[in-house]
């Protein structure tokens, strides 16, 4: 579904991603783990078109998307749930979800959008209760659900999520991960970026480890979970963090 080869990108003179090569097959949950500042967000922003790739290739469904603007990439079926949720704060919950369906409207599938609303409200009953509330007044967990709902309304073939558990209480993190699992069961393909490596590897099929802009390791989720290097660098730190919570 997604195939990335020798991808490089960055900000101004700063090169963040260095020769990143990876792929995601249809129906998989693939996770990218890495410390703060490793370049995970930059990678997702490059795939989604918000940052221009400098070199290398990004093939989505065999089509080169490295030079396309984000709005075109969404239309092809690749959606992102951005880091920090980024909901439209001064707009209502319903409007946020509706805007997510914009590509569907453009493709003249207005009727399908109504069914999609039902489906989304089925997954996130809390959002239905708060339909008329301004998105900025939701709790962090609710905003995360809204951001996921908004991305799903485009009916993406691939949904990329950037640290959906960031800043949330453990119980809500559990909900969010349950939703990611459910999405896969419904046939979606998910690229999940997490600092919470243990939880992410717990639900993923495969994973990549990103360190200072390079992929230093890749493998199945079980392999990575049992890898001593990963345990020391990412899972150990994770356990500390959970202890503090």
């Amino acid at each position: 579904m997604l195939r990335i080869k020798n991808l490089e990108s960055g900000y101004g003179r700063l090169k963040v991603l260095k020769k990143v090569t990876m792929h995601i097959g249809a129906g998989e949950i693939v996770t990218i783990i890495g410390a703060n500042g490793a370049g995970k967000t930059s990678l997702l922003r490059t795939i989604s078109g918000l940052i221009r790739a400098r070199s290398g290739e990004i093939l989505f469904d065999l089509q080169e998307i490295g030079a396309l603007p984000p709005e075109k990439i969404v239309f092809l079926g690749c959606s992102m749930v951005p880091e920090g949720r980024q909901v439209f704060a001064p707009m209502t919950v319903r409007e946020n979800i509706l805007l997510g369906a914009y590509p569907q409207y453009r493709k003249r599938r207005g009727d399908a959008v109504r069914d999609d609303f039902e489906r989304i409200y089925g997954i996130f009953p809390r959002l239905k209760e708060r339909e008329r509330q301004l998105a900025g007044t939701l709790s962090g967990g609710e905003q995360q659900m809204l951001a996921i709902a908004r991305a799903l309304m485009a009916r993406p073939k691939l949904i990329m999520m950037d640290e959906p558990s960031m800043g949330l209480a453990p119980l809500i993190i559990k909900d969010i991960f349950a939703i990611v699992t459910r999405l896969r069961e419904e046939g979606n393909t998910v690229l999940l970026v997490e600092q919470n490596a243990k939880a992410a590897l717990g639900i993923a099929d495969r994973g990549y480890v990103l360190e200072t802009g390079r992929i230093i390791m890749e493998g199945t989720a079980e392999d990575l979970l049992s890898n001593r290097e990963v345990q020391r660098a990412y899972l150990g730190r994770d356990l500390d963090a959970e202890g503090r919570m």
């Binding site: 989604s48 078109g49 918000l50 603007p69 984000p70 709005e71 969404v74 239309f75 959606s79 992102m80 951005p82 980024q86 909901v87 439209f88 704060a89 001064p90 707009m91 805007l99 997510g100 914009y102 590509p103 453009r106 908004r150 991305a151 485009a154």
Partner: peptide
């Protein structure tokens, strides 16, 4: 409200 998020909605 949020330019990047809007672009990610295809706008």
């Amino acid at each position: 409200a949020n330019r990047d998020a809007a672009r990610l909605c295809g706008i």
